[in-house]
Amino acid sequence: MRQNDVTYQLERFGLVIVWLGFIALFGAMRPDTFLTWSNFSTIFGSEAVLVIVTLGLIIPLTAGDFDLSIAQVLTLVSMSTAILDARLGLPLYLVLPAALAIGASVGLINGAITLYFRVHSLIVTLGVGTFLHGITLWIGNSQTISGVSPILMEWVIIQRLWGIPIAFYYAMLLALLIWYMLGHTAYGQHLLFTGRGREVGRLTGVAVGRTRLTAFVLSGVMGAVAGILYTGTTGSANPSSGTFLLLPAFAAAFLGATCIRPGRFNPWGSVIAVYFLVTGINGLSVLGFRTFVQDLFYGGALVLAVMVSQLVSGRRERAL
């Protein structure tokens, strides 16, 4: 049976094992710089934004849709937050809801176009994302905006719990929520059937269109949360902040789908995949490799992840 099967357990925790192997390897080579608590707590805190973007992605991915605009939602929200807060001096209790509303409306637009015009979400969100980037450059005058309220920074990156910035715990809380939503609610099952058996779902009464629309709105909101945390982490907003997060997030989402619950996009797998990728890059840069390792690592991981998942599903088919 699957549950007791050693190979299945190895598959589930394979990525964790490789991750620990990486840590051991880099730790052995650079014990005094890599293997320090401050290095790790920095990684955990600063990459919370990437975790949240990845978590946002897996919701539409489960329903069979891509949201390529999520990184630009992050950038736009980050820029809007900075402008509303630093330039216009609005209080945070107005700025934060406005920021979330921006994310939700972008999701609504993505979903509406995808569903109404029956265009593939890959194309819709690619276009919408670029459009959003244009808006970001426009409203921010292509400049970095700093001077964000210290309260925001205080509650994102300065406050620490057991030495790790509080942003990390926000990400874990969201992972918990999404884990619950995907695994333990009717909506999670609706998402799953929408992605993996859309017609079966439709014939069994699942409102497939509404499920997809909701997924887009949720990923928009997650993008907005990530945008707020990004602004809080750096204390400023720059017009290209999200651009470099899209590929890592996809790599982590697909890599995450090879572990914990292999064959499905799952939040804990995503979290592990993000920290696995970041640890690898951090370790390599501690060893003295230059920035190009980022692209090698993220790009390679994305392709490797989809290859592995194809191999795994192919093996299952052959095992019949």
């Binding site: 333990h184 009717a186 999670g188 099952q189 799953l192 059937f193 079966v200 779902g201 069994t204």
Partner: peptide, 15 residues
Amino acid sequence: TENAMLPRLGRGLWL
């Protein structure tokens, strides 16, 4: 399980 229980999900907030 997922296939068999799909019509019985209802509004399920705790499966």
